[in-house]
Design a protein around this nucleic acid. Structure first.
Lengths: 189, 189
DNA sequence: AAAAATATGTAGATCAGTCTATAGAGGAGT
DNA sequence: ACTCCTCTATAGACTGATCTACATATTTTT
């Protein structure tokens, strides 16, 4: 495993991540990925014998891990679960604004347009979303919240929906109002 | 304006709606649309000189109007805004389950993967989402809720996020938990 | 030298869009 | 009643580009 090979593999995943986040699975061509990452065609099928599906699945998992780390980071920084979610929303808002509303949830576009398609990619999306929900549930359960599992799903729904609407309307309003909603949801019992 | 022409135009939109809902903008080929609707290629460019973008935009608007009617219908049936949203969630849950988790929000896939596509489609999505938010805001304002505008965005985020997650995980859990969250959000001040 | 990785070339399918030809309906004029 | 004319709509072939995947050859690393 030469470091050169790993570097090329990494560049391919990075390129795929950038493209599928904004254009989804079908909207991303391998030629585009190759152009962005500067890798030759042969390298793609050497590192990802499964072709497009394997590359996209790897990109999804990597993006998922990155957001997972973002959740943990926000949890470390904030005094409680509510603060962690607010921090997460702020981080997403900043990302969305910096990218001129092209980068919201890195999985969403792919999760939706591959839902009826390939099993590999769809399964990756399912696994990543579930891992995020579990991370949130852990935070909520750590505060003794009885409905941690359910609340984690609701909070994740709120965040994902706000990202979708903010990106589509090109306004931070949905994300902004999601802050208030999270505060209300995670206050009290 | 023969009725024959209108019928063909309608069949094209119906076919486009079915396909873009599950595969998004990029994932839907015009050949597929033609095959599903049984219309010849020439008819497509006769009724939609703007090509794919114009057809998809028309499909988005029609789907948007249908969901808008669904909101009004739920509002008529329920005693208050909270009940209306719960009815809407139930309707979406039924739709999702009946379609084996392929049909959630009819716009979402297109809204996300058409970020780079022509402005026509993106603008249609933005307009439809905003119209849904306004419909919800009217319901909330009618009950004297001061934060109707903000709450409408939050509720819509919650619904859209739950649809996304339910479809991706192939479970009704997110939609189910969204019911509880809506109840909590729309109870009290 | 053997294995790992890179570098192109190419195949076959599908893509959106344009082109020309033609069928059908309804009105006008004789 | 009949033909002529026009507009609407259908019908499908065709184009050039692009797509994923595979094949083969070359370079780099161990």
């Amino acid at each position: 495993m030469g470091s050169k090979g790993e570097a090329t593999r990494s560049r391919l995943i990075i390129g795929a991540r950038e493209l599928i986040e904004t254009h989804g699975y079908s909207g991303t061509g391998l030629n585009q990925v190759l152009a962005v990452s500067g890798a030759p065609r042969g390298s793609l099928y050497f590192h990802f014998p499964g072709g497009k599906d394997e590359l996209v699945a790897a990109a999804i998992e990597e993006s998922g891990a990155e957001v997972g780390a973002l959740i943990e980071e926000a949890a470390d920084r904030a005094p409680d679960a509510r603060g962690a979610v607010l921090g997460l929303l702020d981080a997403f808002a900043a990302r969305l604004e910096e990218s001129d509303f092209t980068r919201g949830c890195p999985l969403a576009a792919t999760a939706l347009d591959s839902a009826a398609a390939d099993d590999t990619v769809r399964e990756s999306c399912r696994r990543v979303y579930t891992s995020w929900q579990r991370a949130l549930a852990r935070l909520l359960a750590a505060e003794g919240r009885a409905t941690a599992e359910a609340d984690a799903w609701s909070v994740l729904s709120l965040v994902e929906g706000a990202l979708l609407l903010s990106r589509s309307t090109r306004t931070l309003a949905p994300l902004h109002h999601a802050r208030e909603a999270v505060t209300r949801l995670l206050t009290g019992p």
